[in-house]
Simulated assay, not measured.
Amino acid sequence: RELRGLAPRLAAAAVEWGRTGEEAEVRLVARFQDRVGSGAALDPLAEAEAADDVADWLREQGLGQTVDLADDLAEHGVDRAELDALAAGLRPDALAAALAYLVPVLRIRTLAADAAEASERVVELVRRTSAYTNLDRAPQRDADLREGLEATLALMAPKLRNIRVRREYGGVPDLQAFPSELNQVWTNLIDNAVDAMGGEGELTISTRREGDHAVVEFRDTGHGIPAEALPNVFQPFFTTKDLGKGTGLGLHVSMDIVAQRHGGTMEVDSRPGDTRFVVRLPLARDPG
């Protein structure tokens, strides 16, 4: 929508600039346009201060009516020194037309870069989603546990915003599994860990091989599970969460997927500040 509105603005400004600017001035503005916006982005406070300084400069040049350009110029890293250099090469009556042309050019360039970045993120999200759900693969296949863990972490990123995630991936071979179901297990365990930490803390996910089993461990720094509740955590409808925050089915379903569908085991050990869920999956299954 913003790009649609900028297009006619740029067209009108380009016509006016083409009518006003002399050849040397046009070249100067083109070089300025290519140069700005390549520095490091300012933090919001610094950008606001820069915009105020640019607005003062515009007023000093008798361009008070274009003070709304200050925010756009400051956002692209244009400061007083650069504006002084630009103005030195332009006739006074050409400066306003040059700035009116430059701002939509710079804004459109930013929007194009944002669109390209967003497209890349969409492609990555589709790839991660495919890895998470395995929609394009057979239900049971050779599974890379780390691939599933990373896909799950990517899709849960918003909930992990204030969680420090440590990865301690050891060498584990692929194993025959139902990857989308294991990803459901990883989701439940990560979700429980985040809730136990109140949305802030450290989650450590590790993988290793122990004999003929692959081991995946989730360790969090949350408040822990009361000792009297530990024997019941895998029972259906049992939950230690506040009323309305849990169904009591997540761990039960996860245990069913691990034990019944994959012939594995899941254990939990907990104390305040250190809760560990350990999933063990056989690397080879008996066909019978």
Rank of each mutant, 00 (worst) to 15 (best):
T275R: 14
K245H: 14
R280M: 03
G263P: 02
L243C: 09
G246E: 09
R261T: 03
F277R: 06
Q235D: 06
H262M: 05
H252W: 07
V233K: 10
G263R: 04
N232V: 03
P236G: 04
K245S: 14
D269F: 10
G263S: 10
F234H: 02
F277N: 09
D242P: 14
G246A: 11
T240D: 13
L249G: 01
R271I: 15
V258E: 02
G244Q: 00
F237C: 04
E228K: 12
F238V: 07
V253E: 04
V253Y: 03
L230M: 12
E228V: 10
L230W: 08
D256W: 04
F234R: 00
R261W: 04
F238A: 02
M255H: 15
P282Q: 01
P272N: 14
L230A: 10
T239H: 12
V268A: 15
D274T: 15
G244A: 09
R261E: 01
L251A: 10
M255P: 00
V279G: 02
G248I: 03
R261P: 04
P236F: 00
G248M: 01
V233I: 15
T275F: 06
G244E: 06
T239D: 08
M266E: 09
N232M: 08
T240K: 05
G263D: 02
T247M: 09
E228Q: 10
G263Y: 03
G264R: 01
V233C: 05
F238K: 08
E228W: 00
V268Q: 11
K245R: 15
D274C: 14
F234L: 13
G250S: 07
